[in-house]
Design a protein around this nucleic acid. Structure first.
Lengths: 335, 335
DNA sequence: TAAGGCGATGTAATCGTTTCCACGCGTCGC
DNA sequence: GCGACGCGTGGAAACGATTACATCGCCTTA
């Protein structure tokens, strides 16, 4: 593959000059400029990004480490992050932690080794070895969706508390009294927030949240299914289950279907994170929607501001409830 | 951030020695080795991947350019590719072409500039500027799922023809006679194959495929919805629609729902690409499933073989039909 | 005892850029 | 007429690693 030297030789100038025209420095005579440009296209020359990065100490690359690529929420987040990054001239390397701290560590480490310009992460758990190192090396880090206590970096997230309160009120209005919840990993901030809000809302309505109505999941499908099974095997199963993410809701549906039970007749269901499929499930699922694309855009905004030496702080957006039929019949929406 | 020189200085050895212990070359005295290792952990030193890549001419990175990240099929593919790559010590940079040739070009170009070791692509269309350049530079390229005529690289794909024939037979057996299809972009190999097989299968059964029963889509949701609308507005709408990917099937469902129509009563529906949600849609969707994970693994296998100088060729797996209720009631599966 | 060989280590070239500095030359002001 | 200046360009030093080659003891062996 042609190098800058070949271009210089062909154009009959020095490599410095070639570099100057390629980087749009002023002070190159038009004639020289066209000579160089000709040589460039003649050879099909493309600058070696690796060498350039070594010299300039920047890779124009952002890292994004997410909980689970198979989760449509994260997929959409990744997509919006990539869009925003590209429009600012950055590429994105996505690391899929699969909700495992060890994998998350691996990705953070690898990304750091690649000398990315900034790191966006939706941290999976409390184990922060590599993450803390990252922050300490001084590389810009921004949390998106989830965050970690004690790690002082900007956080871009949606506050779901109000929406959870609305959801609980909605369920109560439909006559439900025995409400259960499936949480994410204990250490994730989103799980803590959602459970906390749920608990508060119940208390405000004078409802109990017995321990057996709180199932610990891991934000993945299988754990939702296990939790549903456990609920169903209870002497007095809950009337509604609130899954704190969409994949666990899928798991619940799988278990119900396997047992020949129906939503909401046998058990009502609501989820955090709205996704296009929820409109077409049987029945359509009530869910709390996050402004996912905005989350991604803001995150990139803040991260690139940091990477380019501008200051930047946290951003909090808000989530909103979308009621459908999975929790029972509302007003006139029956069919 | 500490460099190899700092380590050498602290350990009191030369950089060459440090490099040797880090790369597990033999012929370093155990004492020296531990001195170096101590210095490394003392400084928290991590080798600079950029510098290393420049020197060794390899980045241990693979590029993956896919049609659409939001498409669960590609998401799953990406996930399996990443898994396979990681287990071989490679990272993956995903480029989302969003089904636009220009974006695909952009990503291929960017990846090449980063000097990735190999490129995996599910080409979006016939415009192959950057792609052809890539092949010409000699970098290993492998097509996965879709391929391009006239570009001579290994192709890893699932042959869906037999499954399409089975699907048509299934539809025929259920009594359907007016079958329609929504294709992908004309230039994509998968679309061509699926339409071709569909057409053949119809002919074999003596059924016609009128031009108005062939809608051109682009593998994305909105186009499925438009196609469904056009079908429904026909004087004699089809009885069944076969969407050649899952997102277009979603679009069809959206349109039907918007018009208050039901599957399969008002219009039956089948899709290419099975995804977990299809089990829970209303009704569960009949679909043709690809061995997605195997596709990803094989692709990485072949690509890394190429990148590491071993020869490798194309792989063809096969897709299979999963009949559910969206095309009408079968034997005893009603509920 | 000296030559040869081998094992451990250091020196320095190299990868492909960017960029600082120096240089030559025409122009301007005095 | 001469120094200062600016402009366009080239030379060469980085960036941080890997690795071919040189070096230096020390051990073996004749």
């Amino acid at each position: 593959m042609a190098s800058i030297k070949d271009v210089a030789a062909l154009a009959g100038v020095s490599v410095a000059t070639v570099s100057r025209v390629l980087n749009a420095h002023q002070g190159v005579r038009p004639g020289t400029r066209t000579k160089v440009l000709h040589a460039v296209s003649e050879l099909g020359y493309r600058p070696n990004g690796v060498a350039r990065s070594l010299r300039t100490h920047q890779t124009r690359t952002l890292g994004l480490v997410i909980g689970d690529v198979l989760n449509p929420f994260f997929t959409e987040l990744a997509r919006s992050v990539e869009d925003a990054a590209r429009s600012r001239g950055y590429s994105v390397i996505i690391g899929n932690a699969d909700e495992q701290p060890a994998l998350q560590d691996h990705h953070v480490r690898t990304l750091l080794d690649r000398r990315i310009d900034g790191l966006l992460v939706s941290p999976t758990d409390g184990d922060v070895g590599a993450l803390r190192d990252a922050v300490e090396t001084g590389i810009p880090v921004v949390f998106v969706d989830r965050w970690l206590h004690g790690v002082d970096v900007p956080v871009i997230r949606a506050d779901g508390r109000r929406a959870v309160h609305q959801l609980v009120a909605h369920l109560h209005a439909l006559g439900h009294r025995r409400l259960a919840i499936i949480t994410g990993p204990a250490a994730t901030s989103t799980s803590t927030e959602r459970v906390g809000a749920f608990r508060e809302a119940l208390r405000a309505l004078g409802l109990a949240l017995p321990a057996e109505y709180v199932a610990q999941g891991d934000f993945q499908t299988a754990s939702g299914r296990r939790a549903a099974a456990a609920f169903l095997d209870l002497p007095e199963p809950p009337e509604v289950v609130f899954a704190t993410d969409n994949l666990m809701a899928l798991g619940v549906m799988e278990e119900l279907r396997a047992r020949g039970l129906r939503v909401p007749r046998d058990m009502a269901l609501a989820a955090f994170d709205d996704i296009p499929w929820f409109l077409h499930t049987d029945p359509p699922l009530t869910a709390i929607a996050q402004p996912t694309a905005d989350l991604g855009h803001s995150a990139v905004q803040v991260l690139t501001d940091l990477a380019e030496g501008r200051g930047a702080g946290s951003v909090t957006l808000s989530a909103r409830l979308t009621a459908r039929r999975s929790c029972g019949e509302d007003e006139g929406s029956r069919r």
